[in-house]
Design a protein around this nucleic acid. Structure first.
Lengths: 223, 223
DNA sequence: AGTATACAAGAACAGGTGTTCGGTGTCAAG
DNA sequence: CTTGACACCGAACACCTGTTCTTGTATACT
């Protein structure tokens, strides 16, 4: 059943609330809404807010100052709406740049070294899988070409204890050589499959392989 | 000259404000801070807020309700602090997924088709260069290997009118073949340099090449 | 004409909220 | 012992803010 459209005043109110929150870090008061929307009476503002609430566009906490909140529905209508800090922190991950990765050398991860200036910001929506325990490594050198990874690329890793066939991992072979490859456990041996489909896999005994982390995402920036 | 460290009460207050904003979408009142931090007097809360302001961790709008705001400095100290919606909208770009890119076929870009469900979320901090006029293309097939790009990778493109040597572009050759390569204008001919350093460049006359967009970033998600 | 609904408005009020005042206690320095 | 700085506190006050009341106008319907 279709609802009545919003009156012009109601649209103005929603837009004002949206903008006010973005600029001030807090919702407006009833009187501030009135002043901005040419409504001289707080009861008219209150009446319209009640209507917006009935339409599911607004939530109100009674009898507290600035007790307004736009709903998801209002956000969908007006786009670019305000989120709580939790939404931000959930969506925009700051992942520590923990070091470099070079083919042939073990990863040198800097434990507990969280440098915000060198953190990588990635949207959680771009990560398929869990987003805890993430760290970033920067690729040094051309030796990761078989993984379709360039010098300078950023590899988002996750510390894991269980690996499934088809995961891309950083695998340390014989304590000596790190490689990024898709891993398959074939019983008596481990198959490490290059990302480049024109290249052949390598096979190693399981005890020669240590999985140092799972690759969650790769980012190539342009200079 | 070193500052005195924060008292325990002051640290509690900052953490409470941070959490309160995240959960409620508005800053707390003086009395709410007092209740949460075991401070029975509004003047003690006020005193501590004045100290935090002097230390540059807090801003206050006088004589308005909930007139508190944590500063950038406080954010740096406590991490994961609240941002205004403008910060969010500036940092977290929603880039429309505009179509596919296949080597050998012109890009089929869907004009003005902005589908939020299929948008790509990318932090602006990860883009070197301008962040207007961006769109995303998904790679189909293995034919972009010379660009070190896999089937399924996401290429973030930007419409441009001027190209500089060393830019990676989507180049359409002879109205027939799209390729992703670094472009160099060498006077009488254009050099298109593969990203894979083991591969040779190709050289074409300038009039045979149309630049369809500049590559700003490449993202490889894992399944 | 009467009724119902939507929208509007001013005024009053109750309670929320920030600020100020006067005071106390602790600690370090002189 | 005195003084000053810092931290704390209850109380009072001024003002901010949300809610309610009463009244009015316009429109649609019976």
């Amino acid at each position: 059943m279709s609802e009545k459209p919003l009156s012009e005043r109601q649209q103005n109110i929603l837009e004002f609330i949206n903008e006010y929150v973005a600029e001030n870090g807090r919702p407006p008061t009833i009187r501030e809404i009135g002043a901005a929307c040419n409504i001289s009476s707080t009861s008219v503002v209150n009446y319209n807010l009640t209507r917006l609430k009935e339409k599911g566009l607004l939530e109100r906490d009674a009898e507290v100052s600035r007790g307004l909140r736009l709903t998801e529905k209002a956000r969908a209508v007006y786009g670019g709406l305000w989120q709580t800090a939790n939404d931000v922190m959930t969506n925009l991950l700051r992942i520590p740049m923990a070091g470099n990765i070079v083919a042939g050398e073990p990863i040198d991860v800097i434990e507990d070294a969280y440098d915000y200036d060198d953190a990588v910001e990635v949207s959680a929506s771009m990560i398929n899988g869990r987003t805890d325990d993430l760290y970033a490594l920067r690729v040094s050198g051309d030796s990761m070409i078989d993984a379709m990874v360039n010098d300078g690329d950023i590899v988002i890793m996750r510390s894991v204890h269980e690996i499934r066939d088809g995961d891309m991992v950083a695998a340390l072979i014989d304590d000596d050589t790190t490689t990024l490859k898709y891993i398959y456990n074939e019983g008596s041996q481990i198959r490490l499959q290059p990302a480049n489909p024109t290249m052949e896999p390598i096979y190693v005994e399981p005890e020669r392989v240590q999985v140092q982390g799972k690759v969650m995402m790769i980012v190539r920036q342009m200079p």
